[in-house]
Amino acid sequence: MLELRLVQGGLLKKVLDSLKDLVNDANFDCSATGFSLQAMDSSHVALVALLLRSEGFEHYRCDRNLSLGMNLSNMAKMLKCAGNDDIVTIKADDAADSVTFMFESPNQDKIADFDMKLMDIDSEHLGIPEAEFQAIVRMPSAEFARICKDLSTIGDTVVISVTKEGVKFSTRGDIGTANIVCRHNTSVDKPEEATIIEMEETVSLTFALRYMNSFTKATPLANQVTISLSSDLPVVVEYKVAEMGHIRFYLAPKIEE
């Protein structure tokens, strides 16, 4: 028996909106630790790892580890029917072939339940070791989204370089080139407007902008994004999910031609 009650149901809507373009079908894994997911895009170039810790739920009952195979676009359709302020409860029996989403309005005057068919999904889990990164950039998530969107109008790839000057996002295309440099800046009115660059070594990596733009669908979840870079390793683009977890996107760097 699984029963997860999330007071901030709107968070789950935002989580699904940030996943559904990258991944079609995925297994949600439920354990005592929390509600999690690891899935790759169809070309196995990008991966998303979601964790919503059990403590973040108002009620979290998971009698035994359970894996729920869901079509993310169908799940997003169902969650779209919840109000942004609704309390969302996810329910499933141990041997269930469906999952129930229950939506309660904040003043309890409307209660809806939606039942969605589950599916069997063969998923490959990758072991992702904890890594020390050469550079970690924390910046406003909206700024990062704007940069990725702007650069993708000019080129297909972005070179992200971190030096002591700051972080540079560069692209080139048929019409020309573009470079955007963001400097370390903590003298801001609000902490979420800061750009914090921690650099052990200079690093420069090339990534497909198509995936970066897909990751920025998570922008409504968090004011800040963390971009962790090391030579010859996938970049990690992380958004916090309130105080209860995170969504991390991994993208393999392109090999320099």
Partner: peptide, 14 residues
């Protein structure tokens, strides 16, 4: 594209 490796080039299958 040829210059785009897959994630399995970096992380092992569990």
């Amino acid at each position: 594209a040829d210059n785009q490796p897959r994630l399995s080039a970096f992380f092992a299958l569990k």
